[in-house]
Computed example of a mutant assay.
Amino acid sequence: MIENRPWLNLFAHLALILGVAIVALPIWITFVAASHEAARMMQAPIPMLPGGHFWENLRATLFGEGLSGAETAPVWRMLLNSLVMALGIAAGKIAISIISAFAIVYFKFPFRMAFFWMIFITLMLPVEVRILPTYEVVSDLGLLNSYWGLTVPLIASATATFMFRQVFLTIPDEMLESARIDGAGPLRFFWDILLPLSRTNIAALFVILFIYGWNQYLWPLLITTDRDMSTVMISIKQMLEAAEQSPQWNIIMMTALLAMLPPVAVVIAMQKLFVKGLTETDK
């Protein structure tokens, strides 16, 4: 039994409050900067309380032409590109990985474990090693400056395949035998039994992969030359570079604030399934 010590509880709460404050302070400064005029953010000291221009800055950022001098698309367009890319990567990785794991676990074919280890070994290859040949293939297929080019090269995932394989191995063989006795084929077994049992794992992976796709920078930077196909991460970098000539920090911070919202919304909406998918061990 853990002894209850008030001073230890006080220390633990103070440490938690300090940790939250350290993490939340940059986000608070971003929110405050997004609610002031550009001229106010150039004055010292910087404000620590919100201003009265939040909605004005939001309209100018979301539906305007972006930061002057940055040559970026409107922010709503960049957010849409990032959303399509993140959803495409997450859905594609899950679909391909769960089907691959299903084939490896439940079908007996020659060299199936060799194929699995070939997939698993790709984890040892850094992205930089594969990015040039991948770019050449995408270029030859004419997929530059397209949603297909942003998503398709990134939808293969050895990690997700491995995780689904481990999940399927925990499912008792009696379920497969019962499905066979009831006349269910492989696809019926996959759709009616495996998918419902993997629901929490799919949700946990979706959250991780969505954030992974949303935060992509190097790959979109290589294959997008049209500003209308730029993602929000690339555009924030371009805005920071343009800030040396046009320091509109209210627009930059509002763009950064908007870029935080979709990942946060996904985590909050799927929090219960996310935690359950990472901690659940028994099926």
Rank of each mutant, 00 (worst) to 15 (best):
residue 53 H to K: 13
residue 271 Q to V: 12
residue 4 N to P: 00
residue 44 A to N: 01
residue 114 A to N: 05
residue 7 W to A: 09
residue 54 F to W: 11
residue 100 S to M: 09
residue 146 S to I: 03
residue 59 R to C: 01
residue 239 M to A: 08
residue 86 A to S: 10
residue 106 Y to M: 01
residue 166 Q to G: 05
residue 111 F to N: 02
residue 99 I to P: 12
residue 199 R to N: 04
residue 40 R to N: 13
residue 269 A to R: 15
residue 8 L to K: 11
residue 30 T to D: 09
residue 83 L to D: 07
residue 128 E to I: 02
residue 146 S to P: 08
residue 267 V to M: 06
residue 112 R to Q: 03
residue 191 W to L: 03
residue 187 L to A: 12
residue 136 E to D: 05
residue 141 L to R: 10
residue 117 W to S: 12
residue 218 L to M: 10
residue 249 W to C: 01
residue 250 N to K: 03
residue 44 A to V: 10
residue 117 W to A: 09
residue 59 R to P: 00
residue 174 E to Y: 06
residue 167 V to M: 13
residue 243 A to L: 03
residue 101 A to K: 08
residue 197 L to V: 04
residue 105 V to Y: 12
residue 53 H to G: 00
residue 103 A to I: 05
residue 214 W to Q: 06
residue 78 M to F: 08
residue 271 Q to L: 13
residue 247 P to F: 10
residue 86 A to P: 02
residue 282 D to Y: 13
residue 160 A to G: 00
residue 85 M to R: 04
residue 83 L to A: 08
residue 219 W to P: 00
residue 19 G to M: 07
residue 176 L to F: 09
residue 62 L to P: 05
residue 38 A to D: 07
residue 264 V to D: 13
residue 263 P to F: 09
residue 62 L to K: 06
residue 39 A to H: 12
residue 132 L to N: 08
residue 37 E to F: 13
residue 205 L to W: 04
residue 245 Q to N: 03
residue 170 T to N: 14
residue 273 L to T: 06
residue 111 F to V: 13
residue 198 S to M: 01
residue 218 L to N: 09
